[in-house]
Amino acid sequence: MLKLDNVSVNYGAIEALTGISMHVEQGEVVTLIGANGAGKTTTLRTITGLLQPRAGSITFEGEEIGGKPTHKLVARGISMSPEGRGVFANLSVRENLRMGAYLRKNKGEIAEDMDHAFQMFPRLKEREAQKAGTLSGGEQQMLAIGRALMSQPRLLLLDEPSLGLAPLVVHTIFEAIDEIRGKGTTILLVEQNAHAALGHSDRAYVLETGRIVMEGPSKDLAADPRIKEAYLGE
């Protein structure tokens, strides 16, 4: 579905990604783990067109999307929950969700999807009319994910959904990720929380200083002694 082939990205003279190759297949949850500064966010930003790849190709369903502006990807079926959540602080929860469906016209379907989002996160329903900026971090993350789903994406990109959240909120978020996957949406999950990410994904890539150093089924990686030592703290 999504394929990165030998992608390199520079910030000025500094090479941030060196020849990254990875792929995400229909129906999978694939996670990209790595420490701070490994290039996780850079990878996601390159996929979403915020950064231009210096070399290599990025294809989505067979079509080249490298360097395409972000807003064009939404119409193709890719949706992103940006790093740091990026909810519209002065809009209500309901308005935020409505913005997620900006490109869609069918009001009935939009209302249905909004109900789905509220079912997935009952918390949001309680805060429906509240300004998003007044929500807690966890609720904002739920809103960001709910909003990203409102465009009915085939591929959902999640950037550090657990960042800065209390463990039990992280648990809720990952349960939601399982639920989204159960409905058939493909997910590329970028995470620092390797433990949770490996527990809720099919395959994983490990990124270190701009290179993919390991890849494989999440179960195998979670059992790998090197991963255990470096990322799981065991």
């Binding site: 807003h71 519209f88 602080a89 809009l91 913005m99 465009s151």
Partner: peptide, 24 residues
């Protein structure tokens, strides 16, 4: 209007607006 909602979302968070499919 729809245009107004796009404008306000740009004010709130330009990157997120872009991620909603809005040509900012």
């Amino acid at each position: 209007s729809d245009v107004g909602r796009a404008l306000v979302s740009i004010r709130e968070d330009e990157l997120a607006a872009e991620a909603m499919g809005i040509n900012t």
